[in-house]
Design a protein around this nucleic acid. Structure first.
Lengths: 352, 352
DNA sequence: CTGTTAGCGCTTTCAG
DNA sequence: CTGAAAGCGCTAACAG
């Protein structure tokens, strides 16, 4: 492999390979039985003198329970898995941070898998987590249908979807109302007397949120009796590149839109970049409405109007819902929890 | 909990809870012995007829090996753990993506833990991974000393550090030469005849990269015989907020610097935001040099000059090094691999 | 190539 | 409250 290593420093180090101590070692040291020690480890009552004995032994032997063995017999691991569609995206990263924090409060471990936008990898990730015997799974899916989740339901493992639902099966899901959020965003543009409004969104065939947000755009436009010519509807993928290219094209139209709704974070980034490179000013020449406030609104001048999702609450709610199911206190029915969005106002929308 | 759920849709769903099938079920169906089946599962040779028999049974029973049981006996899990200091940071996210990709090629599973910038959590994450019996660990540490890694060496688990080394023990590490990278960045500013050059960096007490980069800055300034007054050295934490505040302060100095070296990604974001909000133009009034090209250079106008690290190669190299150690082919000595950095030129540095 | 046997480290009945 | 014994699902000798 051609790797840019500049130079390499080496120094000697010792290799030690101590076998970890087991509950059996504690038995030897304390003279107690396995059962008693196990009971102590699981918070049961043991005589104070024995408790002290055990604690001392644990200390001395650096004992740590083997979670594999424990999981093998109890069939639970106090670990939940999360499958994200792209760990490099700030949206996923932010959600993961909140999920991790919420799980930690509940003393649950977290196991993260990245699907890298690939349905095959996504399905593999699911199986990986099942094999790791996680107690439950949170999925931010790329697949639009429930097929890849079959192994999970077969294994009887609780699942909660986050950000996007899937078709074909009703599964607990925490998300926003994408259609409504888009509708509100576009309506704001309309209220500011914009008539030529374009949208940049991800491909409706493959991407749930893109599809819904496009619907919301159309709802608002139709309600106001405004036209939605095909050249104003730019759809392809969920990428910075596309946002950039789409905005370039929009700006060069003879009938240039006066406002553009950039319907996801990546596309917003790319589109802003295109506007910056052009000779046009925002909002004087073009008004902008973005989606998902991940830093973007702060480092771009002027401050962007944008749709914001309550990411912390979404992560926490997903964890809460999942843990309820894990603990058997979940409802018998599937629940879709639809979080509120709001529009954060900046200076990127001109009142015409 | 007060959560902004707008409304809730519910629908009935069935709860099925099939016990997963085991190797024993396959034994019953095929009439073969456990050993033969196990051998097949692990890629050994079995008679073609038996192979077919087994494959059919696996298909029918939806059999998946229980990795917990397997790990318990083999003492390896074909899984590596990664501990990052902040999963919400794009730097970490990008590195993770490359690591995941590299591991996947080698058929290794990945287990990600987020330390959220907290040394206590970091130590816990390490123990979590040990208990999960991962075969090796990659750490992007926050702690500056090796103490938290003791359990790892006690357990005899291979470790590779990424991005930052630690003190107190020599451990394999993949990183850049931070001091040199900073030196080169500041030298470029000096070559453009800047004399009043400031730096924004993270706290030298607590943060390795911040410390090294500050040294590089001082090296370059000293070499050129330029002064480094305390008010030009802004150090605190690795945060957007600090970048913002520090730049505000720098811009309001009576002797305003003509160039600023923003020595990490978060600080670069914040600082750019401050410049954008001011009446000053870049590069006409102030020249900027950033660190880590994670989108930032594209969406900010003018395009930023920045130090870039070869993140893909770093992730891959860390994986490669770790796998060598896991497979026992690692060297007896610790290796520090220092990757090359380069400066990506934009339009944010004015030639005076 | 296949089968038998013995555990990996832990929890969990069930007696005492 | 404690101990003995069984077994979670799988692999790893060893015979055959």
């Amino acid at each position: 492999m051609d790797c840019p290593a500049l130079w390499t420093v080496t120094s000697v180090c010792r290799k030690e390979n101590a076998m970890p101590s087991t509950i059996r070692d504690i038995k030897e040291v304390t003279g107690l039985s396995l059962a008693t020690i196990s009971k102590y480890l699981n918070g049961g009552n043991v005589l104070p003198e024995n408790r002290l004995l055990i604690e001392k032994a644990i200390e001395e032997l650096h004992y740590e329970p083997n979670e594999l063995a424990r999981g093998l017999v109890t069939n639970r691991t106090r670990t939940v898995g999360v499958v994200v569609y792209d760990i490099g995206s700030m949206f996923n990263g932010t959600l993961l941070r909140h999920i991790g924090q919420a799980l930690r409060k509940e003393k649950y471990g977290l196991l993260i898998c990245d699907s890298r936008g690939d349905e095959t990898v996504e399905a593999e990730n699911i199986r990986f987590l099942i094999n790791k015997k996680v107690d439950g799974i949170i999925v931010l899916p790329i697949s639009r249908t429930a097929g890849f989740l079959r192994p999970v339901s077969e294994a009887g493992i609780p699942v909660v979807l986050l950000d996007r639902p899937v078709e074909g099966e009703t599964i607990d899901c925490v998300r926003i109302d994408n259609r409504r959020a888009a509708y509100q965003a576009v309506s704001l543009l309309i209220r500011n007397n914009h008539r030529r409004i374009a949208i940049i969104c991800s491909d409706e065939e493959n991407e749930y949120t893109g599809f819904e947000r496009l619907k919301g755009y159309k709802d608002a436009m139709k309600e106001a009796g405004l036209p939605t010519p095909p050249e104003y509807i730019r759809k392809r993928d969920h990428s910075i590149e596309f946002g950039y290219e789409a905005m370039k094209e929009l700006l060069s139209l003879k009938e240039r839109p006066t406002a553009v709704f950039m319907s996801n974070y990546e596309v917003s980034l790319g589109a802003v970049m295109a506007v910056n490179e052009s000779d046009l000013g925002c909002p004087s020449d073009i008004s902008l409405m973005g989606f998902d406030d991940l830093i973007l609104s702060h480092i771009v001048k002027p401050r962007l109007h944008m749709v914001v999702q309550p990411m912390k609450e979404m992560g926490e709610k997903a964890v809460e819902t999942l843990l309820l199911k894990i603990r058997g206190k979940g409802s018998d029915y599937a629940t879709e929890i639809i979080m509120k969005t709001r529009i954060s106002e900046g200076d990127s929308v001109l009142k015409l």
